[in-house]
Simulated scan of single mutants.
Amino acid sequence: MASHRKPKPRPLTGPAARTALTLALAAAASTTAFQGSGHADPRPGSTARVKAKVDKLHHEAEKATEAYNGAKEKADEAAEELEKLRDQAARKQERLNATRDALGAHAAAEYRSGGVDPSLQLALSSSPENYLERAAVAERAGARQADSVRRVGEQARGVRQLREEAAGTATSLKSAADSARRHKRTVQGKLREAEKLLDRLTPEKRAEVLGDDGHGGVPEGPDGSDGSDGTARADRSGGGSGDGAREATAPATGVAPDSRAARAVSFARGALGKPYVWGATGPDAYDCSGLTQAAWKAAGVSLPRTTYTQIDAGRHIPRSGLAPGDLVFFYGSVSHVGLYIGDGQMIHAPRPGAPVRVAPIDEMPFSGATRPA
């Protein structure tokens, strides 16, 4: 009778054993990777590295933003000037055409009269006295025509000059527009790179990174890196709660030196919570210099567009003499600005992902302050 017992398995040896072991290890590795792939949770310490990179990218983007703002301002001014020059040239051309038409009509009239020699006309005249009177009138008319001819020449030169100025302004406009586009691409590239890094973090870690208003601890000295005195600022005190949220109301601290400064501070308070958008000047979003420009505009003071020009738009104030409404600037490159509100606090538009909010001025390397005039 045949046996139906299951054969006893024989252990694998040689190449078959090595193949089985390889497959088992690969399966285990795949399972582990799958189970841990829910979020690219950074390794210990990697969040700090991501934060450092994001801070640096945001700060570089802000410097490029201020360069973009300056180039765009030049382009806008050039476009406005070009429009004025073209309008002036058109009006001068109209006057030139009118003067030329009048001269043409006079020349045609003389041609129709036959151009008889004046002495012969006097000899043939039945009333020499009347002729002489008409001749005097004609002489005055001739002087006026000569003046018209001179005006034609002057007007033509004026039109040519305006057109040359317009051509130069058009060249400046193109240069400024090209520069603005280059800086725009730089800003967008930096922000895209920062966003990719932030996407690697959990929502909690992302909020923690964006909860800090700083722009990175990279030293900035003569070469354009961060730090007003050429060294890195180690103390970044007053950095907030770390959860990305700030108080939506600014503490009423300090006394503004005048009513205009008070109005600027009041405007900035009203902007709290609005998003940071690079290149924005309100009313729904701001970048750092756009916020300070809008705040002082509400107070009746016209500030230039960029941090680099705003720092010289008034009286320089030492840190010990700060008062609400003063503009406070940061980094050796003067690439960030806020509005001082007293007690070491400012209102500013920090960076993408961080809305307009209150922050200590000690969060970033202080580079100077200005009281708008």
Score class of each variant (00 low, 15 high):
221 G>M: 00
373 A>C: 10
367 S>M: 02
93 Q>A: 11
315 R>V: 00
175 S>D: 12
321 G>T: 08
193 E>D: 14
28 A>I: 04
161 Q>M: 11
47 T>C: 09
324 P>V: 07
89 A>W: 05
43 R>W: 08
186 T>W: 00
229 D>Y: 04
264 A>D: 00
81 E>N: 13
273 G>E: 08
312 D>C: 07
292 T>Y: 03
312 D>A: 13
237 S>K: 11
143 A>H: 14
344 G>A: 05
120 L>F: 09
219 P>D: 05
144 R>A: 13
158 G>S: 07
70 G>E: 06
229 D>T: 03
227 G>P: 02
79 A>Y: 03
352 P>A: 07
188 Q>A: 14
59 H>Y: 15
320 S>K: 11
92 K>E: 07
22 T>I: 11
343 D>I: 09
354 A>P: 01
36 G>C: 09
170 A>S: 14
29 A>F: 01
69 N>W: 07
357 R>D: 05
331 Y>P: 06
27 A>S: 12
236 R>M: 06
233 R>T: 01
95 R>V: 07
86 R>K: 15
191 L>S: 04
277 V>M: 03
117 D>H: 15
178 D>T: 01
142 G>P: 05
172 S>I: 06
15 P>R: 11
57 L>I: 06
76 D>A: 10
250 A>H: 02
44 P>S: 06
328 V>L: 03
319 R>V: 05
333 S>T: 11
